[in-house]
Computed example of a mutant assay.
Amino acid sequence: MEYINEVNINEAIVHILDVNSDEPILNEYPLELNEEVHKFVLRHVERALKDEELKYALFNSGRGIIKEVTQEYLNGHCTIIEASQEIARTLFGIMKTNSSIPSCDLMAVAFSTEFGPMLGLFKMDYVKNYTHKIDFVDNRMSIKIIPQATGLPVSAQKIQKCAFIIPMTEEANYHLMVIDKQGKKGEGDEYGAKYFLSSFLGCTLINSKRDLTKSFLNAAENWTRANAVNDAVKAENIRSAIKKSLKEEDHIDIRELSSNIFEDEYEKQAFVAFVQSQGIEEKLPVDKQWVEKKLKRIRLKIDKEIDLYIDADTYHDSRKFEIIRNGDGSINMVIKHVMNYIEK
């Protein structure tokens, strides 16, 4: 996964896609990027680029409107107004065929990074905001609170669906990065359907090094929870060995790791089989930057009664924190030399 640190906004534009209308409301001018608007756009771009759900994708073979229009723009053959209007028409047409897709604004953002130019497409679902309304009734002031149903997500909120497209080259390993979060069950067909990926973008997700590392850690944790029940010593040994390998190795050999962790032959095979059943191959690369961030803090749920957040360095510092094995499968977690604490 390429972690982007430099984002320079070049231009942006917004179109209104109201499913209650017959046509989209298409903007004919780019946004005026004054200080406040620039900050709003930049924060959404930066937040989305750092989102854990951001994934690599390839455009499907053959023709595709989004693929063709975005490449025309990125190669300088059309303006952001022309490109974004065609993109907005495409998304609006899809929305009109599915009543469960909510109205939104489509924001297109052109920006440059240390890896080159990108075009961001954001489906800005409306959020309900509230404002006041002042009336005069019988010469007396009446102030009411009324809802506004077309508010845009503030920069602190995560966008549910967006894409970042790059110029396509023969040697490129990916064509775009995508966020396509699904809502909670029961919220409607829109969130269960992959319309954003398939019908709109016309792309297929591919696994990045971060995806593989994240999937492996999740699979290992799920196996540990199921196979080290009421055996805290065993669970601690498994988790510590896996974290040590992720921190020290650039590649993980699942079979070799399993042999180093388990003595029982059945458990060795069972662990490997379970990890592979989660779609993870026997050998995988490790995303060291993601591991460093993920394992920087440790969150423990102890006997379903105690939550403990602890810095990784403190967790491994025997002067401050220690795990003592009691010999019966249980452990004591000891916090040492406490000089100050507060209640929250």
Rank of each mutant, 00 (worst) to 15 (best):
A235M: 13
W290T: 00
I280R: 10
S318A: 08
F40T: 05
E35Q: 07
S99G: 07
R63N: 14
L91N: 00
K336P: 01
I94H: 05
I165N: 00
I9R: 06
L33R: 00
Y3R: 11
A48G: 09
E35S: 12
P117I: 09
I324Q: 15
I254H: 02
T213Q: 05
R140D: 10
W290G: 06
A57P: 06
V14H: 00
A220H: 01
S155A: 15
V286F: 08
E221F: 09
N260G: 15
E187W: 05
I25D: 10
M168H: 09
N8H: 05
E221H: 09
P24A: 06
Q157T: 10
E35Y: 04
K161M: 09
K234H: 01
H316F: 15
L106R: 09
M333V: 04
S112V: 05
E6N: 13
K336M: 09
L49G: 00
E52C: 01
V45Y: 07
M118H: 11
I242Y: 09
L205K: 13
M177S: 07
P24D: 06
S100K: 03
N34H: 11
A156C: 13
A219R: 08
M141A: 01
S198T: 15
L201S: 07
D264S: 04
K194M: 13
A273N: 14
A228H: 04
S208V: 05
I302F: 05
L246C: 01
M339N: 13
I280M: 00
K268G: 00
I206Q: 06
P102F: 09
A172S: 15
N222T: 08
E86Y: 11
L284C: 11
F59K: 03
L119W: 03
V286Q: 01
N173H: 12
Y3W: 12
E187F: 08
L91E: 04
I143V: 06
L106M: 08
F271P: 05
I324L: 13
E281S: 14
D264K: 13
H15Y: 09
I324Y: 11
I145P: 11
A163T: 14
Q276L: 05
I254V: 14
N98D: 15
G183T: 14
D328N: 13
L119S: 10
K214T: 04
I310K: 03
I280E: 02
V109R: 01
G202W: 06
E248Y: 02
C104G: 08
N326Y: 05
T224K: 04
C104T: 03
Y315V: 13
K268H: 02
S245A: 14
S99A: 12
F196E: 03
R210D: 00
K39Y: 14
E68I: 00
N326V: 06
I179W: 02
Y126R: 04
K184M: 05
E256M: 14
V229F: 10
M124Y: 05
I261H: 03
S155Y: 15
K301F: 14
Q182P: 01
A48P: 04
G188S: 04
V229Y: 11
L246W: 03
L26C: 06
I335H: 12
I335A: 03
I342N: 14
K50E: 13
D307N: 12
K158C: 12
N20G: 13
N98F: 15
K123L: 01
N173P: 00
D311G: 02
K181H: 01
K158E: 10
L246F: 10
K234V: 00
A57L: 01
L300D: 11
I206A: 07
E28F: 08
S84K: 13
G120Y: 01
W223G: 12
K304P: 04
E35C: 00
K158T: 07
